[in-house]
Amino acid sequence: MHIPDGYLSPQTNVVLGAASALAVAVAAAKTARTVKAKYIPLLSIGAAFAFTIQMFNIPVPDGTTAHAVGGTLLTILLGPWAAMISIAVALTLQALFFGDGGILALGANIFNMGVILPFVSYAVYRLVAGGSAVQSKQRLAAAAIAGYIGITAAAGMAGVEFGLQPLLFHTANGTPLYSPYGLNVAVPAMLFAHLTIAGPVEALVTAMVIAYLQRSNYALLAGESNVRTSGSVRWRRVVVTFAILVALTPLGLLAKGTAWGEWSGEEIQAVTGFIPAGMQRFSGFWRHTLLPDYAIAGHDQMFWQQTLGYLISALAGLALIAIATFIIQRIMRKGGDRDGSAPLAPRK
C-alpha cells in the first residue's frame, strides 16, 4: 500500500502531508506526556520493530507468502498514539532509503497507514474487546477484526486519494495527469484486494501474535508495562478533527485544481455514463477550436515564453560564473584538496 511518487498530484500530497504532520504532532505531545523521558528510546525501537515486522514473509495456504503491515499489532501493543509515531518514522525511513513509497507521497502514506489504520484499529479493538479479560477469546477476536478492518480502511482511504486524481487533474483533452482511475474504479479495486488477501493476512498475523502473548507473556498485553498510551484518546475530539479534515480535503484540492470548464465536462461524462465515440470526436473538435479561453491561452503563452527566455539566460549566467570561479580556484591553490570531502573520510 506504499504509494510511490507520481500517483498523486503534488497538491494532494501537500494537503495530506499537512494533515499527517498535524496528527503526528498531536501524537508526539500525547506520548511525551505519558512516557516522559523514555519517549525517544521507546519510540525508536518501536519504529524499528514496525520496520522489521514488514520483512516477515508469512506463509499463506496456496504455498506463496505475503507481507503484513503490522499496524494493528503495534496499536494494540503500544497504544494508538505511540503506534502512530512508530509507523510514521518507519515509513519515513522506508521512503528515504529503500524506495518503498514516494517522498512527496510520504504525507499520504503516513495518513493512510499511520493515522487512519491505528485509529480505526484501535476503535474496533476497544469496541469488540469491551471489558473482557486479557486472556479471553474475545480479545483475540477483537484483535483479528481490528486488523481486518484497520487495513481495509487504510486501503479504502488510499483508493479515495487515487480516485480524486483523474477528477481534479487532467489535461484539456482528458489525459489523466496522475493516477487514471476514478472513484468508481479505484475504491472498489483497493477494497477488493484488501478484503480478500491483505485483510485476512493482517487479521491472522495480529491474532496469532496476540494469542502467543496471551499464552506466554500476557504482562505485555495487560498494559502493566508503562509504555502504553491508551486511555487518553478523546473520541469526540478525534471525530471532530477528522470531520473537519474530510471537509477540508476536497476544498484544498479544488483550490489549486484545474479550471472549472474542464472538469464540468468530466462531470457530465460521469453522470451520463459513456459518451458515444462519434460525440466524443465532436466534443474534441469543440475543445480544440471553439473554446473561448483560447485567446487567454495565447496571452499565457507570451508570458511563459518570455519567462523561459529569462530563465535560460540566468542559467547561462550561472554556468559562466561557476566556470570562472572554478578556474580561479584551481589557479589559486594547485594540488590542494579539491573535492572538499570530509578530511576524516577514508580514501580509496
Binding site: 528510546p41 525508536s44 498475523v205 505485555l220
Partner: peptide, 30 residues
C-alpha cells in the same frame, strides 16, 4: 503451513518482547 505461521507469530512476539526490553536497557544506558 499452520506450523510455519505459528513460528512467525512466536518470532514476532518474541521480537517485540526483546525490543521492549532493549528499549528499557537503552534508556537506562542513556
Amino acid at each position: 503451513t499452520s506450523e510455519q505461521r505459528r513460528f512467525i507469530a512466536s518470532a514476532m512476539a518474541s521480537l517485540f518482547a526483546r525490543s521492549l526490553h532493549m528499549s528499557e536497557e537503552v534508556y537506562a544506558a542513556m
